[in-house]
Each structure stands twice: as structure tokens, then as C-alpha cells.
Simulated scan of single mutants.
Amino acid sequence: MTTKPTLVVIPDGGRSRVVAVHECGDPAGTAIIHFHGTPGSRLELDFGGGLAADAGVRLIGFDRPGYGASDPGPISVTGMARDVGAIADHLGLGRVGVSAWSGGTAFALATAVEFPDRVSGVGISGGLAPFDRMPGARDGLTPNDLEALACLPEDPARAAEIFRDGNADMLEAMLSVRDDETSPWIDWMFARSDPAVITDPTARQALAVNFREALQQGIGAIAWDNVAFVGPWGFGVEDIATPVALWYGDRDEMAPPTNGQWLADHLPDARLTVVRNEGHLLPLAHLSEMLKTLSEMV
């Protein structure tokens, strides 16, 4: 049974919204706040609660707007960074580590920019480099994606609408996870890059739990996520003084290791690890060493 989330009320533009938070691991341990992937939820790393406890880590996940049990709303890079500050304040945390998987990358790095004296270390797994800076990154975008990005920065809501409408078939297929325990789209997303992971019952169950919770409110948050991290991030990674650990699988087709190399070349303090014969689902097999590395930074 899923633990009832902690609900954090965050002021936002004269109003307030609710953010759902989940904790696992060691309650007295080193605090690490995690940005889930796209799609993803506060439960993304809950499968690793025992690993976190063994590593002396208090692992904290939260739903971005429109995912899981968080109120829907716009998603921006700097806005999500500020959510971490509000969550840390609510939980009475001082210095923290920040981690991210895949689509959470831009938000995690922005948190180090927003709170340089509070974020002691950043851990990234399978993250994309900035699309507007990495050579060749935009070559893989569809005409629909480019149409959406042309609305930025003036009209992010319109950009999210265009992205959602243009990718409706794929996004709607993801919703099958809410009703189908077998989650067939996990196979067509990851069968080539992560065959061993998706055939492991425990790992597959962890994916299904995460995705099912992520998509409780539909597909709108995925569109907002993509607009946020494919569009301009609003900061330069060269300005991040916080140490960053980068992990990539050499079989990753969603975020090839060239992204990690670009980030390692431009971040002032970064360490890149490329794991052989692993894909995008790297944390499902290597979370223990990731947590150990990141906890040592805090």
C-alpha cells in the first residue's frame, strides 16, 4: 500500500498550490531531494527505500504540478527549483543533495543555481544537455516540437498545448499503465536499451507503480515538462559551482552518453560515469552506489 503523501502548500503568484511529497530511507539520514523523470512521480525511487536506509540517506521525492497528487499548473525550470526550497523549509532541512533522473535534469541543475549555499551536490542519471546549446540536439526534434518551441518564451502555455496535441497518440498510449498491470508501453520504450531491467519482475513493478501514480491526472504535465527542459533553461551550466555526479548507460537511446560528456565538459566540477551494457533505466540497477556518491557530497 502506498504511503499517504505529505502535502506542502506553496505560495504561487498570489495564490497557493499543493505539492505532494514522499519520503523513504533513513529519517535521520542525509537529505536528498529527487526530481523524477518524464513522466514520473514522487514514488520513482521508493523501490530503493531499503538501499537509502543502508546508505544513511533520507530520500525525498515530490510530484511536479499535474503529476501524481500535486495540483496541476505550469512547470518552469526556475519554478521547480524554488519548490525544492519550499519543501526543504517545510521539512526543516538545511543543506541537501539533489538528484534527478532523465527529465528532471534541468530542474535539479537549476536548484544548484538558485540555492548555491544550500545544495551541496547534484546527481544526474540519463539527463539531456540543453537543446539550444548542445550541437545536433535539435536535429531530432519533430516539426511539431519546433512549432511548440517557437512560442517560447512568450507563451509557454501555448507551447505545451501544441506539444500535447502533436504527440497525443503516444501520450494517450502511456495512460494504459493506469489500468493494465502489464504496462505494454514499457516494452516499446525500453526493450532495446534495457532488456534485462524490464524482464526483472521487481524492477518492472517499480516502473509500473511510478508511472501509474505519475499519470493519475492525465498527460498534461508531460507536455509542460517537455516545454520546460527542451526550451531555454535560463541559466548557464558553467555558473554551477556545486559538484555534479553524472551517470549514463552506454546503451541509453533516450539520453545517449554524449549528453553527459557535454555536461561534464561545461560544468566546472563534474564527474562522469558511463556504465557498460546499461540503458536509460540505470538507477534501477545502480541506485546504491549513486546514493553513496551523492551522500558523500552533502
Rank of each mutant, 00 (worst) to 15 (best):
T2N: 13
T6M: 10
L7S: 07
D12W: 06
R17D: 02
R17P: 08
C24K: 00
P27Y: 04
A31T: 10
I32L: 15
F35M: 12
G37V: 08
G40D: 04
S41L: 09
S41D: 09
R42V: 03
E44R: 02
G56P: 05
S70K: 04
P74H: 04
I75D: 03
S76H: 09
S76F: 06
T78Q: 08
A81C: 03
A86K: 08
G97R: 06
G97W: 10
S99A: 14
S102D: 12
G103Q: 01
G103W: 01
G104I: 01
P116F: 01
D117M: 02
D117E: 15
V122M: 03
G123A: 14
S125F: 13
G126A: 09
G127I: 08
P130N: 11
F131G: 00
F131Y: 15
A137R: 05
L146V: 11
E154Q: 14
P156M: 05
R158K: 15
A159H: 08
A168N: 00
A168E: 10
D169R: 09
A173I: 02
V177Y: 02
I186N: 09
M189C: 10
S193V: 01
A203C: 15
A203S: 14
N210E: 11
E213L: 09
L215F: 07
G218Q: 11
G218H: 11
D225I: 08
A228G: 11
F229P: 00
V230T: 09
W233C: 05
P243E: 11
P243F: 09
V244F: 14
A245S: 15
L246G: 12
M254W: 14
P256D: 10
P257Y: 12
G260M: 11
W262Q: 07
A264G: 09
R271D: 14
L272I: 02
L281W: 01
L282A: 01
P283C: 02
A285R: 14
S288F: 00
M290I: 13
M290W: 03
E296V: 00
V298A: 13
